[in-house]
Computed example of a mutant assay.
Amino acid sequence: MLLTSYFLAALAIVLAWPTPLALSKAKWTARAPVAAVLLWQAIALGGGLSMIGSMLVWGLTPLGNDLISALHAGWLLVTGDPSVNSPGVIHLFALSTAFLFAFHLVLTLVRASWRTTRQRAKHRQLLRLLSNPSQTRPNTLVLDHDLPVAYCVPGFNGSVTVLSRGLLTQLSAEEQRGVIAHESSHLDQRHDFLILAFTAWHEALPWLPTSRLSLEAVRQLIEMLADDKALEVVTRPVLLRAIVGVASSITPAKTSQDDAKGLAGEIVGMPGGEVTSRRLQRLLSPVAPLSGFQNFVVLSCTVLLLVCPTILLIAPRLLSW
């Protein structure tokens, strides 16, 4: 049990700093955005499980030789069995820290979900006042604005895509198709769930490099995923012209930093701040996707990051079986 807690603590440290730092600088992620998103999720989940698990296992060490027997002994202790000795103050502190940390993560996710739901509801109310339904496209609202703007507002009761009058007049029909396909992919693939999860992770642990780097990386990767879907209906030059045309209309002078943070959780696919150099370079100079073996290696690492903390928690019990 004690050795298991040390292994989990070491894994948590590795997943908290060097791993996300290296992955954020890796160039292969643009070649396989799906695999990269899965790997970022595994790093976040594996890191959180390792942090909680190391404190939990260390706190339960006096109660048993493995997690399952220690939990059983802990239940007997809570129910008043006199044959079970109580852990010391330090072990109780570790257990309390593990439970409080897990509660903090869950509470932050619930709070972020509630805040995002309210922000989206307010945004929909504003859209009902400032926009009109599109006559040609379902679930699409047209905003009476001269600047070319396109984004989507996800929702459980029906998602909508918002296009401005400026976009419909300044972009060609092909460019409009590319923009709409890009925004539709955000809704179809529910990228808002990914952003919500990593936003909550960042809010819960703002001091952790994993939370900041993963949020930035996932935001960039989902834009690449949406670009790939748009390239199925339009050519690369058309999509580039559409993206640059929309992004150039939104400048820091028009959108304050506070407004951008407030909108980040309620809408997906706003061009401002998302047209990074890596994304443009990927469209300008396309690279070959990862080979089957390379994808297998990445996916294997993803699975191992999720399985290893679990095995480290229950491995002594499995060996006894």
Rank of each mutant, 00 (worst) to 15 (best):
A10M: 08
F103L: 12
L213K: 12
A260Y: 11
L299A: 04
Q294P: 02
A288H: 14
Q135H: 05
I180R: 00
A10Q: 06
L107E: 11
L231E: 07
N65I: 06
W75R: 04
T235V: 04
I43Q: 15
T140M: 08
F193M: 14
I195G: 03
V37H: 06
H123G: 11
E203I: 11
H145L: 12
P286W: 11
A315I: 02
A173F: 05
V37S: 13
H202R: 15
P133T: 06
Y6M: 06
S113G: 15
G47Q: 11
Q135W: 01
L205A: 15
V238H: 00
A197T: 05
D258C: 09
T29S: 09
A260S: 10
V37F: 12
H182K: 11
L49V: 11
I222Q: 02
A288R: 15
R111N: 08
V162R: 00
E266F: 08
P82E: 10
C301V: 09
L21A: 08
V37K: 07
L284K: 13
L290D: 05
L225W: 01
F99Q: 03
V57F: 00
V275K: 07
A35G: 13
F93S: 12
L319I: 14
L147S: 06
R124E: 04
L312N: 00
L107R: 15
L194T: 08
G47W: 07
L129C: 09
L283E: 14
V218N: 07
G74N: 10
T199H: 08
P87I: 05
F296A: 09
L306F: 09
L318K: 13
V234M: 03
G245W: 13
Y6D: 00
P18Q: 07
A26L: 02
V162F: 00
